[in-house]
Amino acid sequence: MNTVQSLPLLQNALTVGAILFSLGLVGILTRRNLIVMFLAAEMMLQGISVSLVAWSRYHGDWGGHVLVIFVLTVAACEAAVALVFVLQAFSRTGRLDAAAWQSLREANVARTVDHELPSIDTVPPRFPTLAPAGVLPPADENEPLQREHV
């Protein structure tokens, strides 16, 4: 089972890595939410990690493992710094929209406007709640207890 130099295992693992990488790429290119863009970027890193480990196993070499550890490290750094920037951007525009910064475009280029979106007609999902026990704490009527939709 734990045989080395298994070419099929390598190929299958590489395929998984490629699929993760491609999905991450599509996510980065399409999703407008900055947080989701970063999730997609992390996903690309995961694809790379899988590929590296697969090669490492195939060659019986530690290089891929070590490299993946560094990938983890750099990803942590990147996440910390990037999230700070995302928060800063959010506190300036009030949105997590990557297109919120299109004011950086050329002066004579028209603004790209989203099309009118239909309203959401789906029923908000119901989330499970615990059965009330004991005395109900006094609550502010105006404050929603939960988000309507996450």
Binding site: L29, D97, D114
Partner: peptide, 20 residues
């Protein structure tokens, strides 16, 4: 971060994609 920054409900920009 999402809890800090995400508005209630689906934001318009979460409902559309860029060049899908």
């Amino acid at each position: 971060v999402l809890m800090l920054a995400q508005p209630a409900g689906l934001a318009p920009y979460d409902r559309v994609s860029n060049e899908p």
